[in-house]
Amino acid sequence: MATSTGRVTGTARDRAAGADDGARGRGGPRKAGPFRRATSQYWYAWAMVAPVIVVTAVLIGWPLVRGVYLSLTDATEATMGRTIGVNVIPSTYEFVGFGNYVDILTSGVFWEKLAWTVIWTVACVALHYGIGLGLAMMLNRRLRFRSFYRLLLILPWAIPGFVAAFIWRYLYNSDFGVINAMLRAAGLGGVGWLDDPTTAKIAVIAVNVWVGVPFMMVALLGGLQSIPAELYEAAEVDGATPMQRFRHITIPGLRTVSSTVVLLGTIWTFNMFPLIFLITGGGPGSATEILVTYAYREAFTGIRNYSGSAAWGVIILLLLVVMALVYRRALRRQGEVW
């Protein structure tokens, strides 16, 4: 009897479940999707993030879309719409497709500027990381006046970029600069730091290293302090030399931090417009001009070529995106999560 009752009850339950499923299939209440659940459960977070999304879309998204569109036209100062007094002159530029990109990539100027930009970026980032790591390891030790040294070494990062550029431009002055004054005091001749292509390149690299080392130092110092001291103690007990401890403990322990700061440093240095523009103006001639300064010059000097400048900007963006993707893939192959 119990078995029969159980079967009847089970059958009734199955029929009820089937009827409920049928009702849902015919337009009954459905289970909310993941996006709807997230918005209903975390509506406050979405409300807080919404203004940031809107501002970012307005300040970054719209100029980016506009720039990509202009890069596909022949817009120049002569063909752009403008208002002179009460007269409104309409735009006369036309869509030309990828013509600007073809002109840029087939010109020797692009490859010349790209080569110097790569040299500039690699040299600066390598010096940033090497000097920053050395200073971080020094400050990670017990040292008298360590707080004072930290404050002193972080000052270049705290100084605004344009202020640093003007200070160094004065230091490099051929006639009144402090550097040449020190050389003359030592019995050596003055150097025209910003007058020769080679010395001008060395000069801007030195300034960028001076500005960028504090960031690397602070980031790597934080990474060093996160490595357990017990690892170094155990390695020292086992007889590991300082170089072996550095190679097998410090470098692997800093791998995650290093991958992040190297990527950020590469992007920032690749686009380091203020220092080069304010110190050398891209000169002498165009010896120190990198891709971003050339793009600026296309848009704001001479006959302003807005479409060409926009195409340069899009190419720079694509180069950085490709570099970041390749870098990310290389990290994944090494087992890093990024």
Results as ranks from 00 to 15, higher is better:
residue 97 G to V: 03
residue 172 Y to C: 04
residue 84 I to L: 08
residue 158 A to K: 00
residue 251 I to K: 04
residue 82 R to L: 04
residue 217 M to A: 01
residue 69 Y to T: 13
residue 248 H to R: 07
residue 200 A to E: 02
residue 2 A to K: 10
residue 325 L to I: 15
residue 19 A to R: 11
residue 182 M to N: 09
residue 4 S to N: 10
residue 80 M to F: 04
residue 231 L to M: 14
residue 109 V to Y: 02
residue 222 G to R: 01
residue 77 E to S: 12
residue 259 S to H: 07
residue 212 G to W: 00
residue 49 V to L: 14
residue 79 T to Q: 02
residue 3 T to I: 12
residue 226 S to F: 03
residue 70 L to E: 04
residue 177 G to M: 06
residue 192 G to V: 01
residue 321 V to W: 00
residue 88 V to D: 10
residue 226 S to A: 14
residue 241 T to W: 00
residue 6 G to L: 14
residue 66 R to P: 01
residue 157 W to V: 08
residue 223 G to A: 02
residue 56 T to A: 15
residue 53 I to A: 15
residue 85 G to A: 08
residue 107 S to R: 04
residue 307 S to K: 03
residue 243 M to A: 15
residue 185 A to Y: 12
residue 104 I to S: 08
residue 330 A to S: 12
residue 270 F to H: 02
residue 14 D to G: 12
residue 286 S to Y: 09
residue 111 W to S: 07
residue 24 R to I: 14
residue 128 H to Y: 15
residue 334 Q to P: 05
residue 237 V to N: 04
residue 16 A to E: 10
residue 17 A to K: 09
residue 177 G to L: 05
residue 265 G to K: 01
residue 227 I to K: 01
residue 149 Y to A: 07
residue 69 Y to G: 11
residue 316 I to G: 08
residue 262 V to A: 06
residue 327 Y to F: 13
residue 199 T to D: 05
residue 29 P to Q: 08
residue 103 D to C: 07
residue 82 R to F: 10
residue 107 S to W: 01
residue 30 R to I: 11
residue 52 V to D: 06
residue 182 M to A: 15
residue 118 V to Y: 13
residue 176 F to Y: 11
residue 242 P to L: 04
residue 78 A to Q: 10
residue 98 F to I: 09
residue 242 P to C: 07
residue 148 F to T: 09
residue 270 F to E: 03
residue 110 F to I: 09
residue 187 G to L: 03
residue 29 P to N: 05
residue 139 L to F: 00
residue 102 V to C: 02
residue 308 G to N: 11
residue 113 K to A: 09
residue 130 G to S: 15
residue 247 R to W: 05
residue 206 A to H: 00
residue 170 Y to C: 05
residue 50 A to M: 12
residue 54 V to S: 02
residue 66 R to Y: 13
residue 315 I to C: 06
residue 236 E to Y: 07
residue 108 G to T: 09
residue 43 W to G: 09
residue 297 R to C: 05
residue 234 A to I: 03
residue 109 V to S: 15
residue 318 L to G: 13
residue 54 V to N: 01
residue 139 L to H: 02
residue 111 W to T: 09
residue 213 V to M: 00
residue 286 S to H: 10
residue 249 I to A: 02
residue 144 R to T: 09
residue 149 Y to E: 01
residue 75 A to G: 08
residue 32 A to M: 11
residue 53 I to H: 04
residue 311 A to V: 10
residue 337 V to W: 02
residue 257 V to Y: 06
residue 203 A to F: 06
residue 69 Y to V: 15
residue 244 Q to R: 11
residue 192 G to L: 02
residue 284 P to A: 04
residue 107 S to T: 14
residue 239 G to C: 11
residue 205 I to K: 00
residue 107 S to K: 05
residue 117 T to W: 00
residue 170 Y to T: 14
residue 9 T to H: 09
residue 263 L to M: 12
residue 41 Q to K: 12
residue 6 G to N: 11
residue 186 A to Q: 08
residue 13 R to F: 13
residue 235 A to Q: 05
residue 37 R to T: 13
residue 229 A to F: 07
residue 94 E to L: 00
residue 199 T to K: 00
residue 306 Y to P: 03
residue 260 T to C: 11
residue 239 G to Y: 00
residue 32 A to R: 12
residue 215 F to P: 07
residue 273 F to E: 06
residue 327 Y to G: 10
residue 2 A to E: 13
